[in-house]
């Protein structure tokens, strides 16, 4: 009877497992899937309720970014620029600057749900894009929580 001792050796042994038994073709495939998608997709921000409105609300965002990066970008756009009066040439970006104090805390896709922060823009775009845009709603209060 043929017994392949390599495969049938019991657990609990300290024998180092050689990495060579992993198929190089499979590893090469994984490497190619890990490459980041450099393409960009259009994200359209829409304010909900009394959230401050952005003058520019279309942005091209790298598809491999996580949604968390989109949230951070949004916060920065809403809070940082308007709160910087030392740059007079920057056009006002908000309809009413005092509302900037209400930092957006809630973000939704298609007025429907909050995605997981670690999902990628690319995945969300593939599943939920509308007319070539990924629509991200932001609100200062929980809207569809």
């Amino acid at each position: 009877m043929d017994v392949d001792t390599d495969v049938t050796s019991g657990g609990g042994t300290a024998r180092p497992w050689p990495i060579v038994d992993i198929n190089p073709e499979a590893l090469a495939a994984l490497e190619s899937y890990k490459k980041r998608d450099p393409s960009k997709v259009v994200v359209r921000f829409k304010a909900v309720g009394n959230a401050p409105i952005m003058k520019q609300n279309f942005y091209k965002i790298t598809a491999s970014n996580r949604f968390q990066a989109v949230i951070q970008f949004l916060r920065k756009e809403l809070g940082w620029k308007a709160g910087d009066p030392l740059v007079p040439h920057t056009p006002p970006r908000f309809a009413s600057p005092q509302l900037v104090l209400n930092k957006p805390q809630f973000t939704y896709i298609n007025l429907a749900f909050s995605p997981a922060p670690d999902d990628t823009v690319s995945n969300l775009f593939k599943s939920f894009c509308t007319d070539g845009h990924l629509i991200v709603n932001y609100s200062t209060t929980a809207a569809w929580g």
Binding site: I109, N110, A112, F113, S114, A116, S127, W144, G145
Partner: peptide, 17 residues
């Protein structure tokens, strides 16, 4: 986060929540 995932799944299935 759990409710968000349920709603996202709902949206994927039916196009609304």
């Amino acid at each position: 986060a759990f409710m968000g995932q349920l709603k996202e799944a709902d949206f994927i299935r039916w196009g609304n929540t």
